[in-house]
Design a protein around this nucleic acid. Sequence first.
DNA 1: GGCCAGGTGTAAA
DNA 2: TTTACACATGGC
Length: 210
Amino acid sequence: MYIDDSYELYKKLKSLKLLQESPSFWWPHYGSFEVVLGVILTQSTSWKNVEKSLVNLRVNDLLSLEGMSTCNLDVLMLHITPSGYYRNKAKYIKLLTQNIIETFGDFETFCTEVSREWLLAQKGVGQESADSILCYACKRCEMVVDSYTQKLLNALGYEFESYDELKYWCENIHSYFSDEELPKVYAEFHGMIVEYMKRYSSRKAIEIVF
DNA sequence: GGCCAGGTGTAAA
DNA sequence: TTTACACATGGC
């Protein structure tokens, strides 16, 4: 099957009913501070391992901006050990949360005022993490693309030079939706791509559905 | 036992 | 500006 544009891909994935009907728009606790932590923790790491870390942080009452920014670094490393790269990730989380408080004061202000450039200037936050935070924590109008997106579109015959090129191809669906529904559409679009690839591409079978 | 996961920073070419 | 490598755990 040939896919003309991102809207067709979106509709196709939508018809597969890959996401559970829930108000969370794929990322658990969409729109909350917890998403920021998940974004860092899940870098090159399975979500199962991230959940272990999030449980550790939750039972120790550390799932807040203040809790994270003031937490002892060694304690933080211990809690997030299951997610791998724990030394780097602990440092990045601590710095990021401290900078959020220093620059924006609280999470709500952060969500409305933070820019992509500000996020990209933070250690441990690359393009995908910046967009993930904007899309899933701040409910902004930013599409996340990742290696799954890349692989899927390559399999469908597309080639992209850069992250941005791929992102803009995906964001082309914007003309089919209102500004109000767009953040959720992007959130769900990326979520559907990930779920699709996890299910069908694990070996070689992209053609199963397309 | 090897490979991969909801990537990023850094150093060297 | 690109490429190579380090960072690390747990599931399959």
